[in-house]
Amino acid sequence: MTINQLSIFIENKSGALIKVLDLLSKEGVQIIASTIADTSEFGIYRVICNKPTKAYNILKNNNINVQLTDVLAVEIEDEPGKAAHVIDLFTQAGVNVAYMYSFLFKGKGVLILKVNPLEKAKEIIMLEKISFVTTEDLK
C-alpha cells in the first residue's frame, strides 16, 4: 500500500541534479517517476524507482542528503474522475494531502500521495477496496 520514495535534498545550482542521476544510473537504478518543485534555494527531488533501498544506500554512501519516505501508491483506471474519487474520499475523512503526483505504469495510472494521517488513509483504501501498488510491482 505504501512504497518507498527517495526524497533527495537538491540545491538550486548547476550540477546538483546530474550528480544524483549519475550515481543512480551507474548502479542500474531505474527511475519510474520523479518530481521536483521550483524553489529559490533548494528543492526536494522525489523519486519512485525500482530499487529504492539500494538507491538509498548508494546516495547515502556518497554523502547525499537523502531520506526514504513512505508514500501511498494508489492504482487507478486511466479514466476521467478516478483520481477525484480517491481524493474525495480522503477529504471527507479529514485526510490531508501534502503532495501528490501521478504516472502511468503498465497501462494503469498510479497516484503517489503523501498524506496525513497515513493510518486513516490506509483504512479508507482497505474499506473502499481501492487498488494499490507495492514496491514489488515496480521491480
Binding site: 520514495q5 526524497s7 533527495i8 535534498f9 518543485a37 524553489t39 533548494f42 526536494i44 522525489r46 542528503n65 537523502v66 531520506q67 519516505t69 501534502a98 503523501k114
Partner: peptide, 13 residues
C-alpha cells in the same frame, strides 16, 4: 550543511 534529510516536507525545512 544539512546533516540528515530528516523530512521531505518543505515547510519543515
Amino acid at each position: 550543511e544539512l546533516e540528515e534529510l530528516f523530512t521531505d516536507d518543505y515547510s519543515r525545512l
